[in-house]
Design a protein around this nucleic acid. Sequence first.
DNA 1: CTTGATAGTGATAATGATTATCATTCCTGA
DNA 2: TCAGGAATGATAATCATTATCACTATCAAG
Lengths: 130, 130
Amino acid sequence: MLRLTTQRQAILDLINQSNRHWDADDVARALLDTGHSIGIATIYRGLAALEAQGLIESVQLGDKRHYERADKAHHDHMVCTRCGNIDEFAHPTIEALQRAAAAEKHFRLTGHQLVMFGLCARCDTQGGAT
Amino acid sequence: MLRLTTQRQAILDLINQSNRHWDADDVARALLDTGHSIGIATIYRGLAALEAQGLIESVQLGDKRHYERADKAHHDHMVCTRCGNIDEFAHPTIEALQRAAAAEKHFRLTGHQLVMFGLCARCDTQGGAT
DNA sequence: CTTGATAGTGATAATGATTATCATTCCTGA
DNA sequence: TCAGGAATGATAATCATTATCACTATCAAG
Ligand SMILES: [Mn+2]
Ligand SMILES: [Mn+2]
Ligand SMILES: [Zn+2]
Ligand SMILES: [Zn+2]
């Protein structure tokens, strides 16, 4: 049975009280900054345990796994390749077409991941060249 | 300037004469099996160099980068979580809707990656349970 | 044909995110 | 109170990929 320990509660609170996407290191830094003492291994285990319980969700972006609140409707992500910002979008029609594409190939779809890369509005406006 | 050395030619031939997706280790094993002697570092560099020239393309699947021929039209991937098989599909409407979703958020789209996970037709038919 | 500059190779060390170990501590239910 | 499972934290281990570095291949002069 999953124990909601002090450490796990701290991780969960941190994530639930925000609207962003956190990797393990983000969480570690934030908790240390707020006076918590928690080992990095515990953070990894805590994140995995919380996700297994459906209390948080995650996306694999590049080589890092990012965690976010689970109380949001399904959505996909747009990642700014300049500032790293992660925005979200939902598109029911795209989802439906995915199911159709899977069905057409007799593929039993269990999950998907759609990531769009590019420049967020802010980065696009500002720095064009290097 | 890019030199198409013996090693790089071997990598390129291997990939071009196949229809599958190769990670660095796949390439290493295949080349060793056919009598080639090539260091793993050279394979990584060769794959990167060939991709930079547009001679091959790659997809990041999980924690591994997979390379494939570049002479195919754009497509996305469906990965069987049981046997690891990677199938492909193209869906122009999904692509168009992605551009629309990006435009709506004033996001300058430069690339995307759509991966569907599930069971391929064969795995779905056969083993249901473990 | 010698150079010299530059690119490429291969063995191996280093990196960086994540997992595994393991001794220790915390909880919980009998 | 106590035994056993669950969790923690420090640290070692993994694993794909990169970086180093000494050495070799290529090529364009001179
Ligand atoms: Mn999100
Ligand atoms: Mn492909
Ligand atoms: Zn940005
Ligand atoms: Zn399969």
